[in-house]
Simulated scan of single mutants.
Amino acid sequence: MNLSIIVAMDKNQLIGNRNKMPWYLPADLSYFKKITSKHSIVMGRKTFESIGKPLENRRNIVLTRNTDYSIDGCEIMHSIDEILNTFANSSKEVFIIGGAEIYKSFLPYVNRLYITQIDHEFEGDTFFPKIDWNKWKETSKKNAIKDTDKPYTYSYHIYERTT
């Protein structure tokens, strides 16, 4: 199984504010689309509801405890084990796209992290879980082109699990 997390965060590992991203970076959204297109994406119910629709060219999987939950264009799964079993024999990369509790739950199982690091501090209420960086090695870093109307810079990092 090739399980990855993709996330954007600020200097303090902030990822959200009131179920929304505290920033708007069109180039990062394009990067997210490029990386995740033609792959399966796994998100929690709140993340799906903040997006508001299935993302095109992806297999959309929503994780929820609610057994009556149904969304056109999405598969509903009810446990981490169900997702892990579904993709156990898959060679294709599967992306965990949020939110915070979903990231925390899947962090022990992922082998790659795609992190957009924003060089700014935002206000918010949702943070990425703590990472033991001794278990990860950075394999790629690329500075992003600054969006013309945003006063902060950001960079794309890829980390591979080492242990």
Rank of each mutant, 00 (worst) to 15 (best):
T86L: 11
T86D: 07
T86V: 11
T86S: 02
T86C: 05
F87C: 06
F87S: 09
F87H: 02
A88V: 13
A88E: 09
A88D: 04
N89R: 13
N89H: 15
N89P: 03
N89V: 03
N89E: 15
N89T: 00
N89M: 14
S90E: 13
S90M: 09
S90Q: 08
S91E: 15
S91F: 10
S91L: 14
S91P: 01
S91H: 03
K92Q: 14
E93Y: 06
E93S: 05
E93R: 03
E93Q: 08
E93D: 14
E93P: 06
E93T: 08
E93K: 01
V94Y: 05
V94L: 10
V94M: 05
V94R: 07
V94D: 03
V94A: 01
V94E: 00
V94C: 02
F95L: 04
F95S: 01
F95Y: 04
F95R: 00
F95E: 03
I96D: 09
I96C: 00
I96E: 00
I97E: 13
I97L: 10
G98W: 05
G98D: 07
G98P: 00
G98V: 08
G98N: 07
G99C: 05
G99H: 02
G99R: 02
G99P: 04
A100C: 14
A100G: 12
A100S: 15
A100R: 10
E101Y: 01
E101P: 05
E101H: 11
E101A: 03
I102A: 04
I102C: 06
I102P: 02
I102H: 03
Y103D: 00
Y103I: 01
Y103E: 08
Y103C: 04
K104E: 15
K104F: 02
K104G: 10
S105D: 14
S105G: 08
S105I: 06
S105Q: 11
S105F: 04
F106K: 04
F106I: 05
F106Y: 06
F106L: 02
L107A: 04
L107E: 01
L107G: 00
L107M: 05
L107K: 07
P108N: 10
P108K: 04
P108R: 02
P108T: 09
Y109W: 03
Y109L: 12
Y109H: 12
Y109D: 10
V110F: 01
V110A: 13
N111I: 13
N111R: 06
N111Y: 01
N111M: 07
R112I: 14
R112M: 13
L113T: 10
L113C: 14
L113M: 13
Y114T: 01
Y114P: 06
Y114I: 05
Y114Q: 11
I115W: 09
I115C: 02
T116V: 00
T116N: 11
T116R: 08
T116L: 10
Q117T: 12
Q117D: 11
Q117C: 07
Q117K: 15
Q117H: 12
I118N: 03
I118T: 10
I118K: 06
I118W: 03
D119M: 02
D119R: 08
D119S: 14
D119P: 00
H120G: 04
H120D: 01
E121N: 12
E121L: 12
E121C: 11
E121V: 10
E121A: 12
E121T: 13
F122K: 12
F122G: 12
F122Y: 09
F122A: 13
E123Q: 15
E123W: 01
E123G: 15
E123K: 10
G124V: 14
G124F: 08
G124R: 11
D125S: 12
D125V: 15
D125A: 14
